[in-house]
Every structure is written in C-alpha cells, then in structure tokens.
Design a binder for these strands. Structure first.
Lengths: 140, 140
DNA sequence: CACTAGGGTTAGGGTTCT
DNA sequence: TAGAACCCTAACCCTAGT
C-alpha cells in the first residue's frame, strides 16, 4: 500500500552508522531523534533502525556458505567496526576495507582470476558519504 | 540432489487461487495454514506460494508498459485469465468475492472491467476444478 | 504503555533447470 | 530465449520481555 518497499539509501545507512557510533547500538530511539541525523531518518521507525542494523551486521559477518559459487564480495561496510580512516577517498571496491587488519591477500600471480562478476550492488564508499553529509564529526 | 523441481499440479494451483481469494494476496502463511486448502499445499512453503502466484500473475498479464516505474497492479493479478466462459461465470479473483473472513481489505483498482477481450487464451476452466475439489464455496 | 530484541513473514531480485 | 521452480535476503511484521 503506502510503501511497496522502501529500500535503504546510502545516506540513511550512513546516518544510522553515525548514530550507532555516537549513541551505541540499541539506542534506536535516541538515534532517530538526534537533531543531526534524525532528519535523514524521518521515514524510518526505531524498529526499522534496529532491523537495518541487524541486516548490516549479518551481511558483514558470515558469508560464503551457500554454494560452491564462492563470490568475492570482498567489499562491504562493516557496521560497527572500523571508524575513522584517512585515505577513505581512494577506495578500491575489491581490495579495500582493511582497517587495521590488512589481511587482504587476493594477490596471486595466478592470473587466471579474471572472472570479474558484474558488480551487483554498487558499494561505493560510505565513509565519504558520512563525511560529505557531515554526519560524522571530527571531534567526539 | 535437494529438490528435483516439483511442478505445480492443477490442484495446487486451484488451492492457491482459492486461498488468495479468501485471504487476499500476500497472506501466504495464512493460506498455507488454512484448514481447507492447506492440506493441498503441505509440500509447499509460504515462499513457494508467493513465487507461484508471481509466476501465474506474470503469465496472465502478458506485457506491461515499460514506462511504469512503480507497479500499482501488484495487487489482484488474475492468475488464469479465462475468457472463454460465459460472462455469468466471469470471476474476478479479488474483485467479486465475498470474503468469508472479511479480513481482506485490498482495493481492486479495477482498471477496466469493460474490456472484453476475446483473446486466444486456451485456458481451460479452473473454476470447475476448484468446484470439483471443493476448494471454493459457492457463497461465503 | 513505550522501547528493544528476536523470531517469523513477505517482497523482490537472482539463479538454475527445462 | 523464455518460463517455471527455487534460492537469497533486505525490509517489514508480530510479540514477549523489560
């Protein structure tokens, strides 16, 4: 009816992340009422925030147990982890997100790893978005 | 291994239609649990019901305008567009039924009920099947 | 009663098989 | 190529517990 299905935008996700970083997870109502990112989430209920955070956490976690179809899927915005990074402007859709771990290997002289699947779901840098939106403050 | 692709039988389709007429589209779980046609669908999950209904809707629809962004006609998609029968029996899956439960409040947009397209749909009569199976009651 | 946590259900895109 | 059956999962709902 009213909303066939409201997909979350990158701005909303960024706002949610910023809110969680500021108030901590579980403070959905507070996040929603925050004067800064609240306006970004006017069309979302506190329950929606909770659900979205859950989904984000899940996708950031386990994967690769479906089929033999091992999908790279190397990039994705970890919800709670990783905070500020400096060189967030040069993101490599497939090779980044190595906060302090930097355990990305993906370097085989092999050369037969050329099967680049079409990137379903354009995951561009959310950190940049957060910065642009001014959702994230340099200071605590 | 898992599932050898279980094709839908006419009984199952009829049961699904009956269920949609009673509860309205989107109430897959309720349809599946219904004491009347539920037993016909024991080997189908609620998701299966949904998928099947979608397939039926698509084939019954033919083609849509490519200009449509949203899709207002998501509701009440006549599954078996029967056109060969008498007008007396013309059933509008969701428009003319009297909900026995009265739980279905969907609004049939009723595009145009005057378009009597005598198309070439050799769709055999499903209503007969429904009646035979006793899935459909004459009156609510 | 309001909020949150968590399980359950639906909607829609994608994949596989025919 | 197209269509049917099935899979994956984000988005949404329901409700017990606090």
């Amino acid at each position: 009816m009213g909303a066939p299905k409201q997909k979350w935008t990158a701005e909303e996700e960024a706002a949610l992340r910023a809110g969680v970083e500021k108030y901590g997870p579980g403070k959905w109502r507070a996040i929603q009422k925050d004067s800064k990112f609240g306006p970004c989430l006017t069309s979302r209920s506190n329950v929606d925030l909770k659900d979205k955070w859950r989904n984000m956490s899940v996708s950031a976690n386990g994967m690769g147990s479906s089929r033999e179809r091992g999908k790279p899927l190397a990039l994705m915005p970890p919800p709670g982890m990783l905070t500020l990074m400096d060189e967030a402007l040069t993101i490599d859709p497939l090779a980044t997100i190595s906060p302090a771990d930097g355990s990305y290997d993906g370097k085989g002289d092999g050369a037969d790893t050329s099967s680049d699947r079409k990137s379903l779901g354009p995951r561009y840098d959310d950190l940049v978005l957060e910065a642009v939106l001014g959702l994230k403050e340099p200071y605590g």
